[in-house]
Design a protein around this nucleic acid. Structure first.
Lengths: 190, 190, 190, 190
DNA sequence: GATGAATGAGGATTCATTCAT
DNA sequence: TATGAATGAATCCTCATTCAT
């Protein structure tokens, strides 16, 4: 359990991301990940003690990237609308870029308690960031609002995966729609 | 391939719902479903030709109940606000009642094309019902609105599963919040 | 174990013959035989106590028909050549008529001792009939000759199954060839 | 799909030969082959993708040995009688040596098309070798003769399996008888 | 007698994980 | 460190047989 060559550690997680993301946790075979990473099956176990742990590490890394990116971008936004846009855009773009591997976030699962804990923690962190934005604006029930916002974005995420010819314009379209709806309600101007 | 005793067919699907719902598709063993249903393993295969097909049948039945219930309840709602409340309440209560078995809707997972098709069709039907409500109100982009609404509800669904002591009051609370947010935006009165 | 309606007993064996003969012992399902016979699965067990026993009964009946027919036809043959022709013709025609169901004689098998015994007994009876013919002709090693003759016919039986467009003429051709070879050796006139 | 250690590949096929040869295809369990080979069940599947494929590979190897041996031995025979003796002896000895495992050639059975194809090809190759011998002797209908010869030998093969105390002398006896019968007919001197 | 729903032992195959090299 | 051959527990599914109706 030393910390072997970090480069390979990341390469394995990259491969894992591609395969898990394409086929889901259960349909993914360790052999496939090894092949995708261009190493031997046994080697995987020098870096991760089990399939679950590997999935966990991969998710952890992915979640961290998501949250760090969001924090960074958010620090450059100032008005409330800007912040909402920033959140929406980040959420959508993150998955848009990774759309080929989207089984990951879906199929987050298996009943592994470790997995559940980590997902819960991720959501908690994400919601904290968003609800802070709400709070800074003096809104009531900031956590409710945060969840609602991310829920809308999750719903539109589906379009990334299933809508024909979904591109950057459609993405921007959804982002703006979301912000307007969130600010003004369904009868607001948009 | 006759259709033996419909009663047992439903009993098996009930058992399947409980087990799939608790453990997810992959962690569920056919033997467990048989045991839960109080019958022999082999008997399952008199009713369903495979684990996949059984999961499919179970989902199909569940989706149909959800949609039929929604249509029925919606037909007793008249104002726009009433209709929104009705949708939100139905969505939340449906899962609240089934909260013990919520792995089902999650882990629809498994790359089975039949499953994907059915899920897509369900979503399409659900969104049609909701977007019709938006359209009747003369709103623009009714499908976007429908997806946004259901997205919010899905986000709150998480609270059903994970929030401590989530009960009927919390549920009603989320429903009202959702409707107000949807109608008036985040700064609206609620 | 009474002797139920003999007609149905035979009907079942007819069905069994068709299915076993097409697919072999192991690939045949009791359900298929029942369907082929137009009766219920359970009914088979009123007539035969197991799949093996059914196969045995079917073979027994088939063997008896073969031997009875041979005896009858042979009783109308007088010269040695006539008798050889009769044997050859009977052997070939028997399988020609049943060529659609020829897996039976092949796949006679499974390791069931009862099956082995019966096959052995059948061969013994068959060889007795043929070797008697040899003996009546005053030939030495009549049993060897009997086996040789039937061996040749078995080899040609393959052509019934696999040769394209094998018909009555080809059959007659093989019969005459066999008799000539048997009488005169490979350099004899034929 | 590299070809791991050829030695083990052969060892598995040897074990398979013994078990299939004793019990037939259907009565043989993969677990038994593994045990016979002294390895784990799973290992079998590193070398053969299925029970069928294993049986096929085993038969293929066996057939090739049979034919190669025959060709080799035949190349040392010169007169027609010598060649016939060679064929007969090879055929009989091949099975004599393997008499404990004779279910293999019998029970080639199983409707697998791959198996049928291979069996057909084997017979075709075998018959080609034998009929070439006939042709070189200027005999008419060489293929008929080839089939007849092998048919006789197959019939005597039964004696290997079932005749009490069948030994080398009996074998030689059958070989000579076969050759004489084939050359001179049933009334020839032998 | 006839039925066919129910049974459950049994077997082929998969795949995460180990460990000798 | 890296390998990949070997392992064997685990699981889906089949099908001969039974038995309540």
């Amino acid at each position: 359990m030393s910390v072997p060559h970090e480069e390979k550690w990341n390469a394995i997680l990259d491969a894992a991301y591609r395969v898990f993301g394409t086929k889901g946790f259960y349909e993914t075979k360790m052999a496939e990940i090894a092949e995708e990473a261009g190493i031997a099956k046994g080697t995987l176990y020098l870096y991760f003690s089990s399939k679950e742990e590997m999935f966990l590490a991969m998710s952890r890394r992915d979640f961290a990237i998501f949250l760090d990116g969001l924090r960074t971008e958010l620090s450059g936004s100032f008005t409330f609308r800007e912040k909402l846009s920033c959140i929406a855009k980040h959420h959508m773009e993150y998955f848009f870029v990774r759309r080929k591997y989207e089984r990951v976030f879906f199929n987050s699962g298996n009943n592994d308690p470790g997995m559940m804990d980590m997902l819960t923690e991720f959501l908690s962190d994400y919601m904290k960031i968003v609800s802070d934005v709400m709070e800074q604006e003096g809104l009531k029930k900031p956590l409710y609002l945060a969840k609602a916002l991310s829920g809308i974005l999750e719903a539109y995420k589906m379009d990334i995966l299933f809508a024909e010819g979904f591109g950057k314009e459609e993405l921007q379209d959804r982002v703006e729609f979301t912000v307007n709806l969130f600010l003004n309600g369904c009868r607001g101007s948009y």
